[in-house]
Design a protein around this nucleic acid. Structure first.
Lengths: 230, 230
DNA sequence: ATAATGATACTGTCCGACAAATTATTATGG
DNA sequence: CCATAATAATTTGTCGGACAGTATCATTAT
């Protein structure tokens, strides 16, 4: 059993090369790319391969093709490249601290927003989610229920952008299994904290919800937040 | 000039149909897709078209193809769909308020972080950027210099995730030209505010920097932040 | 000067073919 | 009967060519 030989697929290679030229502003935002036939000759591949490369870049928004006219670099190409970079950064354990700190900054604010914005029904549902946590007997189930609570709270902020950012960070943290090492006892204690947060939100107490959430996160993530006072 | 007839490109249509089947869990995460030839027959298009559709979905991470084996739905397909949704949300003017509110929440915190984390050289450079603002005579140049200041301040938070989120939101706001209607006089007044913020950061005054940034943003974006007290 | 016309260039779609990689099946030897 | 090797079948990767449909631009006509 030898090491897997990574055969770089041509269309990926071509897509990367095109991306590189956009990144280095060799082809600038809004400009037209050379025709597919020309690119094929330049990269020494078939036109089909060039097309597949362009298709892959098109869905990310980096390139737009118009039949009869040509393929154009997106006007906001830099933003798109940057977004892709961000995804890579978030997936890197090296930046775990930043990820935790981001969550620590976002979530208390979102709790405050939720307290101010959530409807009565939403508040009831949030309390219900705490009850569901208390019902769980398995450690894994308890974690999942806790995650559901936090996600729902984020939604109650009624800010889709903030919610999106928060989800990205929280999902990433979960996939990194950062809190898996916590003992079940710690989780059990957490239920009461969740209940207090839910009650503050239900009471419309923005400042209280914010403060309770901060304390809750500090307890779970304390090891990562030593330099974050505030 | 009639309405532009939107001729849906076949590969886009196919890509959307494939996406729909993944979204509805008809094809689940990790599963193998039917072979390209079969998909071609089912969608009644050529294999080339199916391939271009798959390529476009591959770069976003929704599908992974292995030569000789098949194409598979990514294990984290749901997260990817969600991220794509976020990009669409941010580009929608309907959610302008949320975008502004997000910036209003992120940036003061980042100013505080910058005050605590930035090096002496970085602080000097930040002050230099304020001076550069004061030098600008053209309205457009002044706006650009202001943008550069905010971006640099975000970087000084020394948190790459937060910085990435902030950039996404700020760039999006700029591309929507939200602040273009402000008069040049307002921008001129803003220079002094920037200077105060820079000085607070340079002095390591986290609370002060945060408060000054809040006031600054409230002034520019006040119309969008009426419901955001705090 | 403006509008219609046509030439040209380019992308969109299809087809067919073969190579290369993987997986499934069969054959072989113990 | 089992483990392993050889073989076949399946599937993606790449190529080349062909033609249609659309946009762009120069030319011509009004």
């Amino acid at each position: 059993m030898s090491e897997p030989i990574f055969r770089v697929k041509l269309y990926e290679d071509v897509a990367d090369r095109i991306t590189a030229r956009i990144r280095t502003a060799q082809w600038r935002a809004g400009e037209r790319l050379p025709p597919e036939a020309e690119l094929a000759k330049e990269f020494d591949v078939s036109r089909s391969t060039v097309r597949e490369a362009i298709r892959s870049l098109q869905r990310t928004g980096l390139i737009r093709s118009k039949a009869g006219s040509g393929s154009y670099v997106a006007p906001n190409a830099p933003v798109i490249l940057q977004t892709r970079e961000l995804a890579a950064i978030m997936g890197d354990r090296e930046h775990l601290h930043d990820l935790v700190q981001t969550r620590y900054i976002l979530e208390p604010q979102m709790a405050a927003l939720a307290a101010a914005q959530a409807t009565d029904e939403e508040k009831r549902h949030l309390c219900y989610l705490v009850d569901r946590m208390a019902e769980q007997t398995e450690r894994f189930e308890l974690m999942a229920a806790g995650h559901a609570f936090h996600m729902e709270l984020a939604r109650l902020s009624h800010n889709v952008v903030l919610d999106g950012f928060y989800r990205s960070a929280a999902d990433q943290l979960r996939s990194m299994r950062v809190l898996d090492s916590l003992t079940e006892a710690v989780y059990r204690d957490g239920i009461e904290e969740h209940r207090q947060i839910a009650q503050a939100v239900a009471a419309g107490d923005a400042a209280g919800a914010k403060q309770l959430m901060k304390a809750h996160l500090k307890k779970d993530y304390g090891a990562y937040l030593q330099d974050t006072e505030e």
